[in-house]
């Protein structure tokens, strides 16, 4: 088998098989981890892997279809992967009292503020540019 036909086979497998697509996500992650360790960059492997995948999509070296179904499944079930991390609270009994209540208050109020400010900033800029575009289109 020539190299070209092996590549073609691999692409066909990837397009059909969701499990193979999940494996491909894992490969990019592992590559990202390797780059992160080799260069000592303070970036997690997942982010470097994402940048690699994005670069390959943009360069045309990899079709989005060969990752799409696996990626959609991963993103839909992503909340599951956060569940075990929450149990770290078991090691911080000091947070189950007044201090915990105060910290809860800080997080709720601050997060609400962050979300409102972010959303309003983006939305007001959006309306302004829309208005601006509409104005210049008329003129």
């Amino acid at each position: 088998m020539t190299q070209r036909s092996i590549l073609l086979q691999a692409h066909r497998l990837l397009r059909r098989n969701q499990l193979a697509q999940l494996g491909l996500l894992g490969v990019f992650w592992a590559a990202g981890e390797a780059v992160s360790r080799a260069t000592g960059l303070p970036l997690p492997g997942g982010i470097i892997g994402m940048a690699l995948a994005l670069a390959l999509f943009l360069a045309g070296g990899l079709k989005v279809a060969s990752m799409k179904r696996g990626a959609n499944w991963m993103l839909a079930e992503m909340l599951l992967f956060f569940v075990p991390a929450v149990l770290a609270l078991l090691d911080h009994r000091e947070l189950f009292g007044l201090l915990g209540l105060k910290i809860f208050a800080v997080i709720v109020v601050s997060t609400t503020a962050v979300m409102c400010v972010t959303a309003l900033t983006v939305d007001l800029c959006y309306r302004w540019t829309e208005h601006h575009d509409a104005g210049s289109a008329v003129a």
Partner: peptide, 13 residues
């Protein structure tokens, strides 16, 4: 969560 982060490449693209 590592591979899940890679998955964001698809919607961003």
């Amino acid at each position: 969560l590592g591979p899940a982060t890679v998955a964001f490449a698809v919607p961003i693209y």
